[in-house]
Structure formats: C-alpha cells, structure tokens
Amino acid sequence: MLTDLVGVIGCVFAPAVKRGNPVAVDVKIPTVLRAQADGQASVSVDGETVGQVFDSLIAKFPGIKPNLIGDDGGMHKFVNVYVNDDDIRYLEKLETKLEAGDTVTILPAVAGGAI
C-alpha cells in the first residue's frame, strides 16, 4: 500500500522535473551520411531519448530521414546506433534514455571482422 502510494507520487512528479531539463547530446554522423547533414561530422541536438534525438536531427536535416528510419517506422536495418559505444538495439532501442554529455554514434552496418 505504502509502495503504491510512493509509486503514484513518483509518477506525478518525476516527468515534470525531467521536462524542465532539455538534454543536449553530440551525434556523430558517419561519412556516408554527411552529404545529408551539411557535411558535418558531429551535430549537437536536444533530446531525452534516442528517438527524440532522431526527431531533432530529422527536423534539422530532413534528407537524412530515409537513412535512419526504415519503411516500418523502426530503425533502418543497415544502421547501428550507439550511446557511449553501446548498441541501442540491446538497450531500450529508440526509447534509450540520454543524459547531458552523452555521445550518440551512428554507423552503417557493413562486413567487418577478421574473416
């Protein structure tokens, strides 16, 4: 009962606090996508999740959209996105939360490895 009450209070207050702090993160753009991002290698945008960062990026550079988002609305299958070096497909995908100073790296999926 007490736990439930704490949960309710948390739900009411936590989002209000988070909304007051827009998060700025660096996004690293791979060479192959730079033509759609004014040639920039790194862009600073706001977003509390990777999905929000994608929205900000697409608002800034509409041409990049088909390279980030696939036909099904999810991530493009040949794109890997990392938050501080960790692949978001194994975190919370587009819902992965970000903190100020985080780095989001976009890389195309190609063959690699000591084959």
């Binding site: 791979p30 060479t31 192959v32 390279n67 493009h76 890389l107 195309p108 190609v110 063959a111 490895g113």
Partner: peptide, 13 residues
C-alpha cells in the same frame, strides 16, 4: 569494430 566508418568506399546505406 567501427567498420562502417573505416570503409571509405561505402557509397550509401
């Protein structure tokens, strides 16, 4: 490895 960055000849996704 960040192969997608190191492969210079990548034309598009």
């Amino acid at each position: 490895p960040p192969a997608g960055e190191l492969v210079q000849g990548l034309r598009n996704l």
